[in-house]
Design a binder for these strands. Structure first.
Length: 300
RNA sequence: GGUGCCAUAGCUCAGUUGGUAGAGCAAUGGACUGAAAAUCCAUGUGUCCCUGGUUCGAUUCCAGGUGGCACCA
């Protein structure tokens, strides 16, 4: 009997959660979350974690399982989620992967190349060099360490250049040699269901959801995390804009405006990424029965 | 009803001494392999309210109309 992973993806605010409960109950299965921010237990309101009732009705994994202080990345997620999925496949033929974090989804569906974990000291040293000597000096390093990747990389993107240098130094060989781009074999079949709405409707939903988050106490939630704002986990839409307000950079109205705008832009970036993937079947989240039918057809 | 002011991008507005126009905000498209809700790149989208007039040429000047605002009745 074939095992299936049904991947439910789409931009933020499109309505993945409601549909995921419907599908999970229909297939009598669990949900593995592929959301890089809902995984942190201190960030519930701002990341629109499914409401308590849903979490009780359907077993969810990778929601609220980490602290914002924990270091995490998509490679770790790949290891842990793949393990979890195969364990769940013992008792269920269908498992749901639900979330909008593009690279987390990719890590499960395609796999990520094996490269060494970067030493914290090395990361800090390079970061310091970047800040003191500028991007150009990091670029020169990369040119020397890995001319092949240097020719491919977006040289204006500091993070990319920096990371490539880190990997070269850590691995002792060029990053480009480690980038196989090989698709990993999985022992389950993948069915990708993409959710989208017309742009105006999607943006309305995003805007409204931000207002609801504020009513639900997002400001208080962010206040508690203010001291930790330097953490990567808190470099997140909904929190960083409030930190800016707490630090006196602008008023609350402006903070809310920025949260809405940045959420919309995030949704746009997600769509850009997903649109490349020709395996995705696209639907409006309201068409539940149609979606179910399409999934079942794929399982024939 | 009268007088005055205004009408230009999705919004707020600038501008053209007459040669079809540009800022901010918003928006759009894209990249992406161990920070990814991150990070980076690119893009001005327009009956310049309508109809006539003057002019080689009108978004710009003139007249009328329409709509909005203010004041006076």
């Amino acid at each position: 009997m074939d095992k299936y992973l049904v991947v439910l993806l789409g931009p933020t605010g499109v309505g993945k959660t409601d549909l995921s409960i419907f599908l999970a109950e229909h297939f009598n299965t669990s949900i593995v979350s592929s959301d890089s921010r809902q995984i942190y237990k201190e960030m519930n309101i701002g990341t629109a974690v499914p409401e308590k009732e849903y979490l009780e009705r359907v077993k969810h994994y990778f929601i609220g399982s980490l602290s914002v202080k924990d270091y995490y990345n998509s490679w770790k997620f790949e290891q842990e989620a793949i393990n979890r999925i195969s364990q769940l496949h013992h008792s269920s033929d269908v498992v749901l992967l639900v979330g909008g974090s593009m690279m987390y989804i990719d890590a499960i569906c395609n796999g990520i190349d094996d490269i060494p974990t970067i030493d914290k000291d090395l990361r800090d040293d390079l970061q310091k060099k970047y800040e003191e000597e500028g991007l150009d000096s990091i670029r020169m390093l990369l040119k020397k360490l890995d001319p092949v990747f240097y020719a491919q990389v977006d040289l204006k993107n500091g993070k990319r250049v920096l990371h490539a240098v880190e990997v070269c130094l850590m691995a002792g060989k060029p990053y480009s040699e480690l980038r196989t781009k090989n698709q990993k074999e999985r022992d389950f079949k993948i069915i990708k269901v993409g959710l989208n709405r017309n742009r105006e409707e999607l943006y309305d939903r995003i805007n409204q959801r931000v207002d609801i988050m504020i009513e639900d106490g997002l400001i208080e939630e962010a206040q508690k995390l203010h001291d930790l704002k330097h953490l990567n986990s808190l470099n997140t839409v909904g929190y960083k804009e409030l930190f800016g307000h707490f630090d006196g950079e602008y008023d609350m109205e402006e903070a809310v405006r920025l949260i809405k705008r940045n959420s919309r832009r995030y949704a746009k970036r997600q769509l850009s990424w997903f649109n490349r993937d020709k395996d995705i079947m696209w639907f409006n989240p309201d068409d539940k029965e149609e979606i179910l039918k399409a999934i079942k057809a794929k399982m024939q």
